[in-house]
Amino acid sequence: MEYIAISTGFALMLLGLWGILSQKNLIKIVLGFTIFDTGINIVMVSIGYVRGKAAPILDVINPSEAVNEIVDPIPQALVLTAIVIGLGVSALMLVYVLKLHREKNSLDINSFKDLKW
């Protein structure tokens, strides 16, 4: 299970990176970033997975036996906040895309050459 998940995560990361590097459309680049983000989150959660154990919620599990019953809660706590940050970051990038489009009236990244010499 965790091998499948971690492979999916790495594959999504590479797919996202390919999108960021190869696409010309600004919105496609932002989409690449969100896919990259999802991939990293999957990788982090699957690193914390322990084979055949349950979620780290001690309602049915007795707290004294929790050590042998639960998966690692730390990556989950990190990913929980990372997802919310991801939304903020992609919203910020999209707002910049909106501003850039207003300047040049184009979404093609090759039309932004003001800093090129």
């Binding site: 999916t8 989150n41 914390g48 979620a55 989950q76 929980l80 991801g86 919203a91």
Partner: peptide
Amino acid sequence: LFLLLAAPDVAMTEAAIGSGLT
């Protein structure tokens, strides 16, 4: 996938934020 990896909190957040708001 998060739900299968025993992370229900993350699954809820991802479903609401990743596929809804984004």
